[in-house]
Amino acid sequence: MTARSAPSIKRRRTASANAPDWRNALFVAPYLFFFVTLLVFPLFWGIWLSFHKADIFTNGPFIGLGNYLRLFNDAVFLQSVGNTFYFVLLTVPTLALLGLFLALSLNSNSRLATILRGLFFSSSVLSVTIVTLIWRFVFIPQYGLLSAIYKLFGSEVPSFLTDPNLAMIAIAITTIWWCIGLPMMLFLAALQQIPADIYEAAALDNASRWRTLISITLPSIRRTFVLVVIIQIVMQFQLFGQAWLMTRGGPNNTTRAIVLHIYDLAFRRWDVGMGAAASEVLFVLILAAATIQFLTSRSAGDRS
């Protein structure tokens, strides 16, 4: 120890390992850059465009709600909204229920279940072009797979892709075949999270298989069910590829979906302003549908 006073040492606080640090932002920055430039900016630019009479080269004059008024007087657009709702109604419940059914059937470690899981998921990795190609082969009158099956029973296959009443159903079938992998996998993941001892307790409680399904399994995967439905609502509202490649929106515009109409407006008729307005309508529709689904399922869950 010396008598001289030691130079005062600056006391540094020891930071907690989890304390915020500006350097952490560096890790987020690359993602943030693309998120802003490719998602946030276009979102607001789209809104801005929808209030202008714009074409592909110039931003025209501000016309307020003009584009929206034209849209709601456009019978074809209104029909495309109806078509899209019809398509969502055909696909989303089927995907959710069929996915749940497949997951319940294939939730075992047997070799067969493993193979089938892979098989059902494999369609998801195909591109829309391949999928529609396959299904056009199925639906082709006279030579297609369906035609062969109908012939076995001695009847004539209806012309799925050209019948106005059947075209959307054909597209829905194609879509369900294409998209069933994800719901199935999400349900399987949820089923495997349920602890085994709950099932053992239920077995000792003399619960039948049906009662176990209704009272134990389904309540345990309720959150996943909500998630699957919301994901599918968001995805299926954006129907484009299948309808474009299989029917070009026909016959009689019966398979013309909203995105198809947007594509038509913005990139074939160069009416970018109106295309942007239609996009905003679709955006609001998806948001509303997903929100309603989320809110109803949440309040139902709280009551039970």
Partner: peptide
């Protein structure tokens, strides 16, 4: 009747429903 190490209560049921489940069956 069995009491499990992890209790194995049904998480989405109330205590009352948990106790009633076996009797209801």
């Amino acid at each position: 009747a069995m009491v499990f190490q992890s209790y194995a209560l049904y998480p989405h049921m109330t205590v009352r429903q948990n106790m009633a489940f076996g009797l209801e069956n």
